[in-house]
Every structure is written in structure tokens, then in C-alpha cells.
Write a protein that binds this DNA or RNA. Structure first.
Length: 679
DNA sequence: TAATGGGGGTTTTTT
DNA sequence: ACCCCCATTA
């Protein structure tokens, strides 16, 4: 019934019903990739494959859930839920929890998120005394990114540095020594960062005995968004399939946007080198976008020097579509007003806010728009950029969760001690030292930690002592106590610390309550901490003021976070060179091509309405009243522009007679901007 | 000696 | 908004 031709076209049908060999599906945007994947899972189940023996690797856990729930809706059976699914990282995490002993990891190992990893990197760099040299090393976030890139691409550090941080390429040896110390420290503290999850999974998969067992656990493996897989992930997949050809990979080389993470569309395009006897099915009928929007997308794709495998060659008629617009704005402020106007206009025409999205290259690009939306009481949710998880108080509680299972986690101790009044880095370090035994190691058992706590009390001031006692008492799990209760006791113990440390404690304490609820079904607290790190709630959930319209909100998202989604109306903002493409990426041809694909991804999210906004000038925040001219994005070539209806400045400002938009638009500004691209 | 608050300079994308 | 550095204060 899955394979019914009423719902699938010939190609989709062929892919869904394909036999047991390795299968590659090249699928452009809107060609029914998810439908096909869903049907294929259904077909496998109908053929009698046990759900647990199907592994579905997706880019976010949300897309795994979506596929599973769609299969369930068609099939009406709950056993689908048992399909193993998630991101490479989360499946790695589960695998390693089960097999930690075989790869030499401690029980209850902790998982560092990006911020934790950067802090640890900073710590070991400080200990090596490299800070004081006259030549400064990159800051912690850059160092960590460099480390991650090196690990994920498998390229020599020297090459990675020459390409990405040429300004400090001669610090190669110092950087290498920091990395070595970083790795050693993670090991001694029982901690893994995101990259380690993949590295250890690969070790497990490539092991003769364990690897065979791990591969044999799955009858079929399906991988979505394969164009964004890196070498490490490819190695894992190939390792899992070395004795069994049954796997399906799905991707689109035109949508490869994770090169900065070591991903390469080559792995999709050259897949026959990794999977013997590979069969390819190409989906090129677009069911999502109007013909006019497809013209824009295809014009952008046609500008790519190398071309793509997946070009959308056909389309179906989409009702209610309008001509895609290229909207010129005076500046960022004017852009925000224009976008808000247009969003409301479409809303009046019946396009709900949830079916509209504002997309941008970098998370901070929406800052001004967020102000405008709040002012007008237009509710919105923002995806990408800073997240709930990165809020300090959430990390505080998660640190305590990590310690409950792994007292060796010095990063977590360091964080918690500094939460106490009068404790900074120095006292935190001394308190940690008080916990060490003669070997300099922190004991693993809670009993020993409690025995040593008197040494910690000596370091703390009197008001911190009582709080610390409550905390250590709560962290030591009582026999047979349910995990949820344990979590609640820790929350109660940490609450006074949070109240004392932050001005706005009340909403923060509520967040912590929500986090405790997430512990209900968990086996252990370190699992909760790790899973929160791996799959944080995606949005910052900032509903602007009292919502104007209940239960409906506009979506604001980075293009990366909008991957795989679709909306009736899409507003792409800041389509100015330097912002889109980001001037961080314009240094190399590959960088520019990735930005072009990103632009292509943003356009192809739209079903019926599309508008691209170009502010003509940018204010400098440093000097008042100073500004510079922006050039329209280089991706808006002549041929692309010919697919768009231009909305010039004057008429754009007439359309939005909002008070602050009356600021005079200087015609000479416009002329200067138009001419500036000539020299 | 260490914590803390203020000011100046920067800011890509994510598991 | 955040990070980093520096001056001031306990």
C-alpha cells in the first residue's frame, strides 16, 4: 500500500520499493524526499523487517520523528516507533552508552557541548602558559572550531590553519600542544566532546569483533541529507555496512551547506566508491514551489560554475502564487518595517504567520527586525543562534546532573563552585584540589567525595558553605531513588544559588523546573545532560509581548536551521554582499560556492510567495551617523534579477507609511549605491 | 590575592 | 550580545 502509485510518482515508487542493494537517491528541494523515505521505511516493515533493526540517520532528531510519525499515520501501528533513529551524534551517544567498556570509556561519561569544550580548551591553554607570549593565540571559540575542523576533515592541522586562520599559522606548534593537552584532559576527566562521539563510534565500528556486532544489529540503514556528511560519518556508515549492502542514502549536492563542519558533497557524488553495486534514482519533479519561484532557484543554480546533479526540471502548478520580489530598502530599519508590513499584508490575505518565515545568513541579522516585531506585537519564534541550553542557569543544573554520574568532571565542578558567592576561578580551583586524593584524582564514589567535603568547606566563605552542603547532599544519589526525584532534589539545592547569582531569578527557576520534567523517563542524569547538549530545544521561544494572534507566530530562522522545511511565504533579508554571502566566506571559491548553495536553499523553502530584501546602506555602530554602502548580493546576477520583480525604494516606502519610515530617503544615497558597484 | 564590575572591541553557519 | 581585559574593591 505504500507503494501505491496514487501517492508516489514513478521515480519515488522505484526508490521506495527498491530491493536490498545499496541505493542512492538524488533529490532536489521539494521533490518528495521525505515522502519517499517514509514510504521506503513502510515498505521495509511490510517486508517483515523488525523495526529495531532499521536505523534511520537524519540531520535532526525532529526529522527522524517526523518520518516515523508519518509512517505510523499511514500504517496505524505503534511498532514503527521502535525504529532506531536520530542524528549521527545521538546514535553515537546511545551506542557508546551501551558499549562504553569495550572502547575504554568510563560508565557515566559526560558530553561537552560547544561552550564547555571551549572552556576546557581555554583552561588547558592557560595551564600551558601560552597566553603570555607576545603572539596571542586565537581565542577559545576559534581554537575549538579549528580543532573540530581538523578532526572532522582528517586534514593535517598545518593545512587547516593555513586555510582558515592564516594570521596565526606560525603558532602551529603551540596550537598543536594545546590540542594534545585538551585531548588528554578530556580523557582523564571522563568527558567526550561532540567530535569524540563520532571518533569513538568509528573506533567501535572498525573493531573486528565489536564492529561486526554493531553492523549486524541493523538490517537496513537509511541516511538523509547525505550531502552534509563528513569523512568521519562516512567512515562510520561504511564500517557498519561492510558485511551487509542494505542501505539507502538520500541527498542533494545543490544543498550542501556544512562544509565548515568538514562535510563534502563529494561523498554523495562519489558514493559508488564506497558502496559496491550502487543504484541511483534521481527525483527532479518539484511539488513545492510555484513556477516563478522555481525560475529564481534555477537561475541561481545555473550561475554555479560547476553545476549540480539535481536541477529541477519540471514543476506542478501551485495555486495562489505571486511574482517573486526583489525589494530595495534604504537601510536596516526600513527593511524591518517593510518586512513587518509585508508579513501583515500576507496575513490579511490568509497566509497564517506560521506559514511564513524570515530567513537570514547569520543569527544576529534578525536583531533589528525582532525589535520591530515586538513593537508591533507580532509574535515570533526564532530558530538558530543562541539557544535555551546556552543560558547559564540551564548549564548550571546540567553540570550538577553530570556530576551525579561522574564526579571526575572537573569542568562541572568548576562551574558549580563559581556559582557560589565569593567564589571565582581561583577558589574554585582550590576547592577542586581539596577533592583530590593522593594521586591527584577526584574519587569516583560519592561517599569519598562527601568525606572530603570538609576540605572544600575550608576554602568557602560562610554563606557559601551551607549552600554547598545542600548541593553535595542532593547530588549523592540515594539507593533506588527514582531519577526524577533525584533531579528534583538537585534542583531544590541549586535554586538558592541561582537566586543569589542572577538578577532575574524567577524565569530562570521556571526553566529549571521544565528541565527536571524532562528527566521523567531517563535512566540516569548524565543521559539527560548529554541529550540536552546533543539536541537542545531549537528555538529561543521568545514570544514578543502579549501575542496579537494566539497560537500563531512568525518563524525567524537562520538558513541553516531552516534546512528541510517549507513555508508558503519566505522573506530573505540582508541579501547584501558581506552579509549574504557572508564576508567571512568570500575568501575562497569554495566558500563562495557554499554561500551560493545556501542562497539556493533559502529560496527553495518557498511555496507561493517569495521576497528578497536588499538594504542599501548600513549604519556603523561605532561612529554615530556614519554609514557605508552595501552592494546587492553577488548572487543577484542579471539572469537572477530577470526572474524577480524589482520593488524600487520610493514605492517601497510609500507602501509602509509607518512613523519612523518617514525618515527622508536621500536620492543621492541611492545613486551612490547604484554607482558604487562600477568601481 | 581574588572577585567583580565597567568599558571597549567584535560578531557565520551547527551536532 | 558577548567576550576579554583592566581597574577597583574586599
Amino acid at each position: 500500500m505504500f507503494a501505491s502509485r496514487e501517492v508516489l510518482n514513478d521515480r519515488q515508487h522505484e526508490a521506495a520499493n527498491f530491493g536490498d542493494g545499496p541505493l542512492r537517491v538524488i533529490a532536489g528541494p521539494g521533490t518528495g524526499k521525505t515522502t519517499t523515505l517514509t514510504s521506503r521505511v513502510g515498505v521495509l516493515l511490510e517486508r517483515g523487517v523488525t523495526p529495531e533493526r532499521i536505523l534511520l540517520l537524519t540531520f535532526t532528531r525532529r526529522s527522524a520523528r517526523e518520518i516515523v510519525s508519518r509512517v505510523r499515520a499511514i500504517r496505524g501501528s505503534d511498532q514503527v516507533r521502535r525504529v532506531a533513529g536520530g542524528t549521527f551524534h545521538s546514535v553515537a551517544h546511545h551506542t557508546l552508552r551501551r558499549h562504553h567498556a569495550e572502547v575504554g570509556l568510563p560508565d557515566g561519561f559526560g558530553v561537552l557541548d560547544r561552550g564547555d569544550a571551549a572552556d576546557l580548551m581555554d583552561l588547558v591553554r592557560g595551564e600551558l602558559g601560552i597566553v603570555s607570549r607576545e603572539r596571542r593565540l586565537p581565542k577559545k571559540a576559534t581554537l575549538t572550531a579549528l580543532y573540530s575542523r581538523t578532526v572532522n576533515t582528517g586534514m593535517p592541522l598545518a593545512d587547516v590553519m593555513r586555510e582558515n586562520t592564516p594570521w596565526c599559522a606560525d603558532s602551529f606548534e603551540e596550537v598543536a600542544s594545546v590540542f594534545t593537552a585538551f585531548m588528554a584532559r578530556k580523557r582523564s576527566l571522563g568527558l567526550l566532546d561532540f567530535d569524540d562521539l563520532l571518533l569513538y563510534w568509528r573506533v567501535a565500528v572498525q573493531d573486528d569483533i565489536l564492529g561486526k556486532e554493531l553492523g549486524a544489529a541493523y538490517d537496513h540503514i537509511l541516511v538523509d541529507e547525505f550531502q552534509d556528511v563528513n569523512l568521519l560519518q562516512l567512515d562510520v556508515l561504511v564500517g557498519l555496512r561492510r558485511f551487509d549492502p542494505r542501505c539507502t542514502i538520500v541527498g542533494d549536492d545543490a544543498q550542501a551547506i556544512y562544509g565548515f563542519r568538514g562535510a563534502s558533497a563529494r561523498f554523495l557524488l562519489d558514493a559508488e566508491n564506497y558502496f559496491e553495486g550502487l543504484t541511483t534514482v534521481t527525483l527532479d519533479v518539484n511539488y513545492r514551489s510555484s513556477a516563478a519561484i522555481l525560475n529564481v532557484a534555477n537561475a541561481i543554480a545555473a550561475d554555479a560554475p560547476e553545476g549540480f546533479c539535481s536541477v529541477l526540471r519540471e514543476q506542478v502548478r501551485v495555486v495562489g502564487a505571486s511574482q517573486p520580489l526583489l525589494v530595495h530598502c534604504a537601510d536596516e530599519r526600513h527593511q524591518s518595517e517593510t518586512v513587518a508590513d509585508r508579513v501583515l499584508e500576507l496575513y490579511e490575505q490568509g497566509v497564517a504567520l506560521q506559514k511564513q518565515a524570515v530567513l537570514f545568513r547569520a543569527a544576529h541579522h534578525s536583531a533589528d527586525l525582532e525589535i520591530e516585531l515586538s513593537r508591533r506585537r507580532i509574535p515570533f519564534v526564532k530558530y538558530g543562534g543562541l539557544r535555551y541550553l546556552e543560558a547559564a542557569h540551564v548549564k548550571d543544573l546540567l553540570a550538577a546532573f553530570r556530576l551525579a554520574d561522574n564526579p571526575r568532571d572537573e569542568m562541572a565542578w568548576f562551574r558549580l563552585f563559581q556559582l557560589m558567592p565569593g567564589v571565582g576561578p581561583a577558589k574554585a580551583r582550590r576547592a577542586i584540589n581539596a577533592l583530590r586524593d593522593v594521586d591527584g584524582k577526584i574519587p569516583i564514589s560519592h561517599r569519598e567525595i562527601q568525606q572530603r567535603w570538609s576540605g572544600v568547606l575550608d576554602v568557602l566563605s560562610s554563606d557559601a558553605r551551607e549552600m554547598s552542603l545542600g548541593l553535595i547532599e542532593a547530588m549523592c544519589q540515594r539507593e533506588s531513588e527514582p531519577v526524577a526525584l533525584h533531579a528534583e532534589r538537585i534542583r531544590l539545592a541549586i535554586a538558592p544559588l541561582v537566586t543569589a547569582s542572577y538578577d532575574d531569578a524567577a524565569p530562570r527557576l521556571e526553566d529549571l523546573g521544565a528541565l527536571v520534567l524532562a528527566c521523567a523517563d531517563a535512566k540516569r542524569l548524565s543521559d539527560v545532560a548529554a541529550e540536552q547538549a546533543l539536541e537542545p530545544p531549537a528555538s529561543t521561544g521568545d514570544l514578543a509581548g502579549p501575542p496579537m494572534i494566539d497560537e500563531d507566530w512568525l518563524v525567524l530562522s537562520t538558513v541553516h536551521s531552516a534546512k528541510g522545511l517549507e513555508f508558503d511565504a519566505v522573506h530573505v533579508i540582508h541579501a547584501a554582499d558581506g552579509n549574504f554571502p557572508s564576508d567571512m566566506s568570500t575568501g575562497s571559491p569554495e566558500g563562495i560556492e557554499e554561500e551560493r548553495r545556501l542562497f539556493y536553499v533559502s529560496i527553495t523553502r518557498a511555496r507561493r510567495n517569495l521576497a528578497i530584501y536588499v538594504p542599501l546602506r548600513y549604519h556603523h555602530h561605532r561612529v554615530r551617523d556614519d554609514h557605508s554602502w552595501a552592494q546587492p548580493s553577488r548572487f543577484l546576477s542579471e539572469s537572477v534579477r530577470s526572474t524577480l520583480e524589482e520593488v524600487p525604494l520610493a514605492s517601497a516606502s510609500e507602501q509602509c507609511p509607518s512613523p519612523s519610515a518617514t525618515a527622508a530617503i536621500d536620492g543621492s544615497d541611492v545613486v551612490a549605491a547604484q554607482l558604487s558597484k562600477l568601481w
